[in-house]
Design a binder for these strands. Structure first.
Lengths: 209, 209
DNA sequence: TAAGTTTTGTGATAAATGTTACTTATACAG
DNA sequence: CTGTATAAGTAACATTTATCACAAAACTTA
């Protein structure tokens, strides 16, 4: 089942030899919504490829406050902790399942071998870095050039795309944590959006109009 | 002369075959302080390797306001616009010479060939991505978790390291542009640092104590 | 040497965000 | 069905940052 998903999602990225090898070596893992997949400072022994679901990548400050950097989606380039590509031992980010997700975990040792021996893996790694790099640039832009209301609205639009639904189930507190701000600020801005007919609010639920 | 620098800076990173080839194909360019090396939306046809000097990498918002993302230094991994590694046609960042710098420009076509044929180049590219990725994470942390005074102080410390001098020649307006804030805010914070005996101020000059 | 220009510092005010407290509404558990 | 817990909205106030205006000091140019 998982191997089937692997083929389905990656057959246009990896050559068949590599897919077979990944299928043999990799371990399928499933995570429920809100499960921590990788934690900060956790030793990295696997490269996870996302088969289904989606994942949010977070940074943490010295006081334990978090910030969402970007979301990962299935089927797309989904190297999560890019430090693992280099065999660096500990994660600098936290990966949390945004919804129920399944991944195939590949032992890190193979990464280097494939990197030298397999052209499709090399291209995949390079493309993953590039995609992540672009998303980091976007995260920097959001923080440096946007006010909180703009960041919030963009966040809501991203959630809608991710869940392919105009209604997102989320608490104001959760949004505040992702955006590294206070719950009151988020409640105020959301109310303002409602007054501007951009969204409709209910408890635990936001509908983007 | 430039070829000598190339050997000196990169002989422990690249194998000899690659260094020779870079020396043959590459064009040495020199830039003066404040020269624009790569501009935003500029078509990318070369991969620049930094031989000497240092460079600052900037983002720009829709109104033309800039933000410093990170500095590049010579001899270290110095892939500047990582998009060029993928043959992406236009730059998303602006690269400006922080001090007089020299670079060797490699036509982009070779990048892909070497990437598949040369292990030392592959390792170099991978390591460059990783280094830049770490610096982007740091830029995100600075923006999300730090107040302007902390960012400013860190900026000053970085400048000191870059120029290997406790005295940096810079205008308040330039700092304000790098940190994407207003000149008045920077002048006030610097004055406060002086009052706290962290720095000593003169016109066009700051000495870190 | 004087005039002009540039840089810096300060004051006043505004806007954005953060924090604390509290009330109200809604969902959940027994 | 009721009590409790949780989530959301609002008020008041504080802090940080941004903007505008202007004066003073220092540097440059003629």
């Amino acid at each position: 089942m998982g191997k089937k998903l692997l083929y389905q999602k990656f057959n246009h990225i990896f050559d068949e030899v590599l897919i077979d090898e990944i299928g043999k070596i990799g371990t399928i893992s499933t995570f429920s919504k809100d499960d921590i997949i990788i934690d900060i400072n956790q030793p990295l022994q696997y490269i996870p490829l996302l088969l289904s679901g989606n994942i949010k990548i977070l940074r943490e400050d010295n006081d334990g406050n978090e910030l969402l950097i970007y979301f990962l989606e299935a089927g797309e380039t989904c190297t999560m902790s890019l430090t693992c590509c280099m065999g660096t031992s500990r994660s600098k980010i936290r990966a949390v399942a945004e919804k129920d997700s399944s991944l195939i975990m590949i032992p890190v040792q193979n990464m280097q071998t494939w990197f030298h021996n397999n052209e499709s893996w090399r291209n995949f790694i390079l493309e993953s870095y590039q995609t992540r790099f672009d998303e980091m640039l976007e995260a920097i832009d959001n923080l440096a050039f946007m006010k909180m209301d703009e960041r919030l609205y963009k966040y809501l639009i991203n959630k809608v795309k991710l869940h392919t639904s105009n209604i997102i189930i989320v608490k104001h507190q959760d949004i505040a944590e992702d955006l590294h701000t206070s719950r009151v600020v988020i409640s105020r801005l959301l109310k303002q959006f409602e007054n501007e007919n951009k969204i409709k609010l209910s408890r635990n639920k936001i509908e983007i109009l």
